[in-house]
Simulated assay, not measured.
Amino acid sequence: MTDQSAAPDRKRRRLPQINPVWVLLAVLIAGIVYMNPGFAEPTGYMNFLKRAAPLAILAAGQVYVITSGGFDLSVGSLITLVVVGASMLTNNDPSATYWVIPLMLAMGLGVGAVNGAIVCFLRVPSLIATLGTMITLNGLAFLWSGGAPRGYLPDTFRFFGRELIRDVPLVRFIPVSVIVLIVVVGLFAWLMHRTNLGRMVHAIGDNPVAARLAGVPVNRVRISAFMLSGLSGAIAGILLGGFAGVSTDVGAGYELEAITAAVLGGAQLLGGRGSVPAALGGALALTAIFTLLNFLGLPQPVRQVVQGLILIAAVALAMHRRKRTGT
């Protein structure tokens, strides 16, 4: 009798598990196509991917920090500092792009390293540490620009955010930002799911004491997670500067959108569980929700309310699932 009742359970366990975020994304895309049939054309979905690219890259980095048991609230301010700093450093000189972009990427890694060091060595909770970094970076961007950024980003810098590769078979064109998205998310997914780094990140988020006793270099891994998050913020800033131009609030709110996307993809805020492809799905789903709200003509405050409700619902569902399964 026991074997007979256990057989259906074994069959269910053998069935492929589909993350609900992909089902949600499919429903949202169907809704968008219903309201705007032109979305099914290459121009429609390629522009959608172009808009989603910065958030998706940011979520791919954020999921490292969340899976390790922390938060990174500084990435939105880092985006602003990258855009403002790049406009000041290039000073309308196209040739400056070739050293400014590596400098911005290094700055992202440096900000992440500082966040990680504060969390690991000063024992400051990541929520407070990165909140302080967020305020500091906003202040630096304001001081650097005087509140009004001068100059503009040259075309060589904006290439990554707004240029298109044309005459592509089947889809006709591919935005350069989509290629950057594929490369960055592919690299982050490989690191998370195919290397020891990803396994150690999950181990630390699940139980840092046990991970340390097992020989995991906890501090080094946590700092690496924050550095990857900072790198993703710098890359997202380069893309946003490409097609949004220079502004002192270009990165505002992106830190919460990245956390929402990661949690929507199934990452647990208490750590121990997270997936880069699922975070990508969460970012695409969140962008699809915002697209639907725009089609409906709803104002910006409604978008913020919806984002808050999504975050609360996703966290509540994750906590319920964790309590039910005991994992």
Rank of each mutant, 00 (worst) to 15 (best):
D93F: 01
I179H: 04
R273E: 13
P16D: 11
N92H: 04
E257Y: 15
V306N: 00
K323H: 15
A86D: 02
V63Y: 01
L55P: 08
V305Y: 02
R194L: 14
H202L: 14
I128Q: 04
D167P: 00
A244E: 14
M107K: 00
A210P: 03
G251I: 09
I79E: 04
A59V: 12
G326Q: 10
E255S: 08
F173N: 04
G237S: 10
A225G: 03
V221T: 13
G139L: 07
L181V: 10
A60T: 07
A234M: 06
P299K: 00
E163K: 11
R172W: 12
Y152A: 08
P20L: 11
P125S: 10
L25N: 05
I235A: 07
W190V: 15
A117I: 11
S224K: 09
G70N: 06
D155K: 12
I66V: 11
V263S: 09
V209H: 13
F243S: 11
S275E: 09
I174P: 00
G326F: 09
H320D: 15
V250M: 08
I223R: 01
F48L: 07
G147P: 00
K11P: 00
W190A: 15
T133D: 03
A244F: 14
V33Q: 05
A225M: 03
F159Y: 14
Q307C: 09
G281P: 07
A59P: 12
V171Q: 06
G132W: 00
I128L: 15
L55F: 05
S87C: 09
I238T: 10
V114G: 02
Y98G: 00
F160T: 02
V21I: 15
A285E: 07
L309H: 06
I118S: 02
V119Q: 08
Q307Y: 00
G266S: 08
P301N: 00
G70C: 09
G205N: 04
L187F: 12
V65K: 01
W190T: 15
V75T: 14
I57H: 04
W190I: 14
P94N: 02
N92T: 10
R166Y: 10
N138L: 12
G241M: 07
T287S: 13
G147C: 09
Q62M: 15
F157T: 01
A106G: 14
G186D: 11
L309C: 15
A261T: 08
P102E: 04
I29L: 15
T90H: 01
V65Q: 05
G245F: 08
V82A: 06
L187R: 08
V119C: 06
S229N: 04
M200Q: 15
P154K: 00
S247C: 04
S77N: 07
